[in-house]
């Protein structure tokens, strides 16, 4: 019993058993969030460092709370207020932090591959909290967890990701995780915001939102990164909204009992209307609550059985 890995870097290639173990464990942790005292002791004595080189509200608070609820000691580091400003390299920063005897690192960075790089220079367990346009595995897992809680299954569902697929690490983690668990996945967005050779992800690709929504159970609406407009990838916000924005009128094509998701932060009135965001089929706030349970499960499964102590147990 346990994960096949000491780190959570990506959902691409993650075995189905690992995904199911995390989702099942998260189900048990979800209940803790409804208790009067939302704290359990399994990571007592462990120290977790949250290393955030990019701004984040939701993910960072969610990780911090998950750590505290597992009784870990936590330190949060933000690049803006640290020696990174004085020119220290990433490797020096993390090795100095590790010299302070820490057990796990949760890292967000603008460059893909940084979490993997950290596994090469540290003994700590590494959790990827978003690296460049590569992956955001805990977001993928919490989206899948939220879907599974509603439908009691993943296999056979049709999930549509709408928006900026090209720059979205959330989209990638969702695609890999959902496909491993047997969902059929479609993506839809302007051609300029679809990744090069997007078909190789094994998804159905649409540029017409009306067609894309046909027969879909879950629509996951990605944030349109407004800075992309400056880069000339779409002509105007209004055109994006007209062609790809999700409004109530468009929902009719979905399967009954459909679900609306958004990883946040939302641009209301751009990729999603208020009516849809706050409608009865929206699980956007549930995603946030579930995120804590999923992150607790990941931290528990990675950090619960520490490498050194495992070896200690073997020699006994």
């Amino acid at each position: 019993m346990g994960l096949s890995t000491r780190h959570l870097l990506q959902l691409e290639g993650a075995p189905r058993e690992d995904l199911n173990l995390i989702l099942d464990t998260a189900e048990s942790f979800r209940e803790i969030l409804d208790r009067p005292i939302k704290k359990v002791p399994p990571l007592r004595g462990k120290t977790v460092v949250n290393l955030f080189y990019e701004p984040s509200t939701r993910t960072r608070i969610s990780f911090e709370l998950a750590e505290k609820r597992l009784s870990a000691d936590t330190i949060s580091f933000s690049a803006a207020t640290s020696s990174v400003k004085k020119g220290e390299t990433l490797k020096d920063t993390v090795r100095n932090i590790e010299a302070m005897r820490i057990d796990m690192v949760v890292v967000r960075h603008g460059s893909a591959g940084v979490p993997y790089y950290l596994t090469q220079c540290l003994d700590a367990n590494i959790v990827n909290a978003g690296d460049g346009t590569h992956e955001h595995p805990t977001q993928g897992l919490l989206d899948i967890f939220t879907i599974r809680r509603k439908y009691k299954k993943i296999a056979g569902l049709r999930v549509l990701l709408v928006g900026d697929i090209k720059h979205s690490r959330v989209a990638r983690s969702n695609i890999w995780g959902l496909k491993t668990l047997g969902a059929s996945v479609a993506v839809c967005g302007p051609t300029t915001l679809l990744p090069y050779e997007v078909e190789r992800f094994g998804v159905d690709v649409y540029t017409d939102i009306e067609k894309a929504m046909e027969g879909v159970d879950v629509v996951n609406i990605l944030r349109i990164q407004l800075e992309r407009q400056q880069a000339g990838l779409f002509p105007s916000q209004r055109e994006y909204t007209n062609l790809f924005g999700i409004s109530s009128e468009r929902l009719a094509r979905l399967n009954p009992n459909y679900t609306i998701m958004h990883p946040g932060p939302m641009n209301r009135g751009v990729e999603i209307t208020n009516e849809v965001a706050d409608g009865p089929s929206s699980v956007i706030l549930e995603q946030v609550t579930n995120g804590q349970a999923v992150r607790m499960a990941v931290l528990f499964l990675l950090g619960g059985a520490d490498k050194r102590e495992t070896e200690l147990a073997k020699t006994e």
């Binding site: 019993m1 464990t25 048990s28 399994p42 619960g304 059985a305 102590e309 200690l312 147990a313």
Partner: peptide, 12 residues
Amino acid sequence: VNYNPDLPEVRQ
């Protein structure tokens, strides 16, 4: 928990 190489299954 920290002395056992196998993590226990956490049930509800």
